[in-house]
């Protein structure tokens, strides 16, 4: 493997990690708003907040899945290969 390939793979790994971090961050915001709304269902601000971040979450997941493979099984997009088991599992240490 030459040096340039190493750099490219490093960049892809960094992008994957950053996008996953963004999904974890926004996913957390969605969960937090969800729990708040369960006990404050009439809070219009919280509902707006939930809708905004839920939309953003779905965009980020679609972006991630198109580049790096499925996050849920419904994100499997390949006709030729079973991609569900290709990427690291969440409990594996990041390289």
């Amino acid at each position: 493997m030459n040096k340039q390939m190493n750099v490219q793979m490093g960049t892809a790994a960094n992008e994957r990690r950053q996008l996953l971090r963004d999904i974890q961050t926004v996913g957390f915001v969605v969960v937090e708003a969800q729990l708040f709304l369960d006990t404050h269902p009439d809070c219009a601000d919280a509902l707006d907040y939930f809708n905004y971040y839920n939309q953003l979450y779905m965009q980020l997941v679609a972006d991630y899945e198109s580049k790096f493979g499925p996050l849920t099984v419904n994100g499997v997009q390949s006709n030729s290969e079973w991609t569900w088991v290709n990427e690291p599992w969440p409990w594996e240490k990041e390289a």
């Binding site: 971090r21 974890q24 996913g27 996050l71 419904n74 599992w89 969440p90 409990w91």
Partner: peptide, 15 residues
């Protein structure tokens, strides 16, 4: 339930 291939918060313990 559906499985998400991510932890809710990152865990990366080196040692």
């Amino acid at each position: 339930w559906n499985y998400d291939r991510k932890l809710q918060y990152p865990v990366n313990i080196k040692k």
